[in-house]
Design a protein around this nucleic acid. Structure first.
Lengths: 349, 349
DNA sequence: CTGAAAGCGCTTACAG
DNA sequence: CTGAAAGCGCTTACAG
């Protein structure tokens, strides 16, 4: 069943059918009703590809979860508890707005081509990128096609420096710096002076922000930043477990460990437990993100909560509105983060 | 950049360019190389919609998570921990095979239209449905379009009865019945004789299977099936919490409670805890699915493990092979389930 | 208000 | 082996 069939049945031309479908104003109510009735009756659905080819939108947005530094493993992106809820919320929000969502994960530069292709092949009207690394080249390529694009967690200053802000672009961030300051100052208030960190992926904006906030806060309070308490991490469980085990074995422990996300905090707790080191009695632990597990493990994890839901929803709204506007616009929102105190930190006072 | 541009640059016709792109055999190596080089050089990407319109595949599969009985709430489908990993694995597997995946959640019959549309509008080559209810009408509609379709968790006998098996169709199931039998017999072996259940959504195949296995196993062991220990459930946390709280308040407890999935088992544990009833001392609890949380809560949940990963992967492989075959085929696989014993069940002997 | 026609960017018989 | 042409199913100036 094609628009031509509908046209015949309704006694009009394809042009008119198309006008009805696209809700153009210049068709009389009677004609519109007639055409609509036939469409209803035959359950006609315009071919989305033909529409797209003729210049209409695809009503599909792309969602790309980028995690380029890791080794091959079928499900590895979801090792990161931060992605899953974003994916879920984006899908639900977009669906509710009448959009399909096309998902692709990116583990390697060649996967990244898939994003560009999705745009170039016109599969999507706009896209959301999450987990973008500091890699302006990649973003520039995308943005230079001037496709509506939303970046979750990206350093705005890089955008400004490259003057990419004259395109259809938006950035959705969280206040990682401020959240981390809250966390560290809370530890300090509890009397901790030897505070360590497991770093996040340092080529992400949030990874850098959390680390910088950690270092700056210690320094501004006159506390030491000790190399042996700075553990390398990548936001993933495995590395965090290994690094924590190493720290535990060294016999030289900080009194508190700030973990750049919850996945790593929980792994650290497990690693300590495996060595018979008790949390929070021997070492306090604090995380970031407030994933579902955080409030259900034992001890319950003190962490910094991010409004992931709102961020995901905002991304969808933003990308849709970017698709709707002809004029290039750049905008940015930063969502607040706040400390959630539970049971994984002990007062030393 | 269109195929025509490439053709000009390569000094051939669009036909030849197309033949190269589609890897047809009847083009000499020299010509092929020449065309390929130009394509490379200009980063040409054929427009996917034009290809699809001209009859090629879309290289996209649809994934539809159906959960029609619930009330409106933006993220409700993911209240169900069973869906999330399936979504994740399907995306990763499909991506690895070069397919995009188009996702849509279905909460209402009108959402369901979106599935049909996705097929009718030719947005996807094939689709995977998860959470399908007993609703052969719906499946028949889809199948009668003869689109490659994979159903996860569906009663095969319904398919056979309707002779839908002459279409491009596959069903991926798990051995819910056998898994439940293992769980119940384990409880019996521990000395339990008063065993209750929280039912799953009874219009799903797995919901029915788990319930039937529960009832049959009790009966075959000469044990009572008491109405007051049969709690209505829908696989979701909230209802399970409420029903368990009611049971706890009644003052009349079974010694063990089989929960039709882990989400409900965990909620039941929380409801009991809130009433000061200790698991497993006062009541043993057993779940189904083995979600991530199961092994991390306290006490660790004894449950029935399902190979969700393999099921998700198999679905993708299946739908892709269905897209590749001209002849209609029907196939079905049932994945094993097995009991994982942890700490939430107590021996009464 | 409305239809005929061109065009979107491909693929694929068809003919040579 | 290869090109010209028709066709996939829409939309949108254009002309009336």
């Amino acid at each position: 069943m094609r628009s031509e069939d509908i046209a015949k049945l309704a006694g009009v031309s394809r042009s008119t059918v198309s006008r009805v479908i696209n809700n153009y104003s210049n068709v009389p109510e009677a004609t519109r009703a007639k055409v609509l009735r036939i469409i209803e009756q035959y359950h006609y659905e315009p071919n989305s590809f033909a529409r797209a080819l003729a210049g209409k939108r695809t009503d599909t947005i792309g969602l790309f979860a980028i995690s380029m530094n890791e080794k091959a493993d079928a499900s590895r992106i979801y090792q990161n508890s931060y992605f899953a809820p974003i994916v879920d919320l984006v899908v639900d929000t977009a669906n509710a707005r009448g959009f399909y969502v096309l998902i692709h994960t990116v583990y390697s530069p060649s996967d990244f081509q898939k994003i560009k292709q999705a745009f170039q092949q016109k599969r999507i009207d706009g896209g959301i990128l999450v987990g973008t690394q500091k890699d302006i080249e990649l973003v520039r390529e995308l943005v230079s096609q001037d496709s509506p694009l939303v970046l979750i967690d990206y350093d705005i200053s890089e955008i400004m420096a490259e003057r990419l802000n004259k395109n259809h672009l938006a950035v959705i961030n969280s206040m990682d710096y401020e959240g981390t300051v809250q966390a560290i100052e809370y530890l300090i208030k509890l009397g901790h002076r030897e505070i360590g960190i497991i770093k996040g992926r340092i080529n992400t904006f949030s990874g850098r922000e959390r680390y910088m906030a950690f270092e700056n806060t210690l320094q501004s309070h006159g506390l030491p930043v000790r190399d042996e308490f700075i553990l390398e991490g990548d936001f993933l469980k495995e590395t965090a477990y290994l690094e924590t085990a190493k720290l535990a074995n060294s016999g030289n422990l900080p009194t508190a460990l700030f973990c750049s996300n919850d996945d790593m905090a929980i792994s650290a707790m497990e690693a300590f437990a495996a060595q018979g080191i008790s949390v929070p009695d021997q070492v306090s632990i604090i995380g970031f993100d407030d994933v579902e597990l955080a409030s259900r493990i034992n001890p319950k994890l003190t962490t910094v909560r991010l409004p992931i839901d709102e961020m995901a929803k905002a991304s969808v709204e933003k990308v849709i509105s970017l698709c709707d506007t002809v004029e290039p616009t750049f905008s940015t929102v930063s969502f607040p983060a706040h400390l959630v105190i539970r049971d994984s930190c002990k007062s030393l006072l």
